[in-house]
Design a protein around this nucleic acid. Structure first.
Lengths: 134, 134
DNA sequence: CCGTATCCGATGAGATACTG
DNA sequence: CAGTATCTCATCGGATACGG
């Protein structure tokens, strides 16, 4: 059992074999996971580039979310044994299959957010912007 | 500004006009919201039926999540002024537009959860099961 | 450069009891 | 029937400092 290191509320619950949505949310539901996944959709990135491209993320959270994505087998960590160290992150095959899901979520949000009346709600910044094939 | 009544981590952050995914997660990301939304996808439901169909949910959380979904204008609350009280919940037009997104999330989860190796992770039970048109 | 360790406040969410 | 009100505890996640 994954221990108490989870960074989202959808883990560490009892299992239910009938629900795919819960599983999807357990994978992408962390505070910074969408941001990370969207960046990796377009290719491999170094740790430092990832950190620099996501404003306001702390190293603690970046690493924590990357580790969880690794555990869920959607992200691959590639360590080059050189000095200075060089670590790259890349989506796995499984990770790449998330693209349609990520896109439909991005699309719904983009289409409806601006239409909601009395919109005083605020959301995290610097998450992602999924576009058509770049 | 929505006050400190939020039940998920994607609210009460700074705004960013460029990210639809963050907005989507702010709407569907609550612990019980997927369960509620999936049930309402197929039509109006009474409060008590909703409660009975979602195992282990507390009234406190059911009401809290319903209120947030109302605030986000994806769920409509219909009060019939009779004795005993009768309250029904229904998706709004906006709520119904979430169906493709919810389905793609459910599909990804269902297709890949069972394929993940060393699957010791657990997820919430009794969330939802999206199928084709019922 | 790529992380860990630790501290700590804010928030999420269960249990229980009560109400129009 | 359809909720509120409290209390409580676990967890999320930011800030800071240190390490190979």
């Amino acid at each position: 059992m994954r221990k108490d290191t989870s960074t989202n509320a959808f883990n560490e619950k009892q299992i239910n074999d009938s629900c795919g949505m819960a599983y999807s949310l357990s994978v992408i539901g962390g505070r910074w996971k969408p941001a990370i996944l969207c960046r990796l959709l377009y290719g491999k990135m170094r740790y430092s580039d990832l950190r620099n491209s996501i404003a306001n993320i702390s190293e603690r959270m970046l690493v924590a979310q990357l580790r969880e994505l690794e555990t869920d087998q959607v992200v691959k960590r590639i360590v080059h044994p050189v000095v200075p160290p060089r670590v790259e992150y890349e989506l796995t095959e499984l990770g790449l299959t998330m693209k349609p899901m990520l896109k439909s979520m991005s699309d719904w949000g983009n289409m409806h957010r601006s239409q909601v009346q009395h919109m005083e709600k605020s959301i995290p910044e610097d998450t992602c912007l999924i576009t058509e094939e770049p």
